[in-house]
Amino acid sequence: MPSQAGWLDRLKQFERRGRVPLGLLLSLLVLTVAAWWLTLYQAVSMDMPMGLAVRGGSDGMASGEMSGMAMSGIAASGWSPEGAAVFVALWTVMMAAMMLPAAAPMIFMFAQAQARRDPSVAVPTWIFAAGYMLVWAAAGLGVYVAVQIGSDVATALAPDARARWAPLALGATIAAAGLYQFLPAKRVCLSHCRSPLAFVALHWRDGRLGALRMGLRHGAYCFGCCWALFAVLVAAGTMSLAWMLLLTLVVFAEKLFAHGPRVASAVGAVLIGLGAAIGSGSTAMPWVS
Rank of each mutant, 00 (worst) to 15 (best):
L100A: 07
A53Q: 02
S120E: 11
G281T: 07
L190G: 15
F257E: 09
S282Q: 11
L134I: 13
A35W: 01
M106L: 05
L141A: 13
V121W: 03
A161M: 02
W36A: 12
S195I: 07
P105L: 00
G73M: 02
Q181F: 01
A177M: 12
G142K: 10
R10Q: 10
V135E: 04
L8T: 07
W7L: 15
T32I: 10
W37S: 00
A198W: 02
V251M: 04
F110A: 10
A111N: 01
G131H: 11
S77L: 01
C225D: 14
L141K: 07
L157F: 01
V135M: 10
S282C: 04
A89T: 09
S72H: 15
M50N: 05
C222P: 08
D59F: 00
L52H: 03
Q148F: 02
F108Y: 14
F257S: 15
L249Q: 11
A198Q: 12
M46K: 10
Q42D: 08
E15V: 09
V143G: 03
F110P: 12
F223A: 06
A158L: 05
L157R: 00
A103E: 03
V121G: 14
E82I: 09
G150S: 02
P196C: 14
A103N: 03
V251W: 12
H218G: 06
R194M: 08
F110S: 04
L40W: 13
L202M: 02
C193T: 15
F110R: 02
V30A: 14
M99Q: 04
A53R: 03
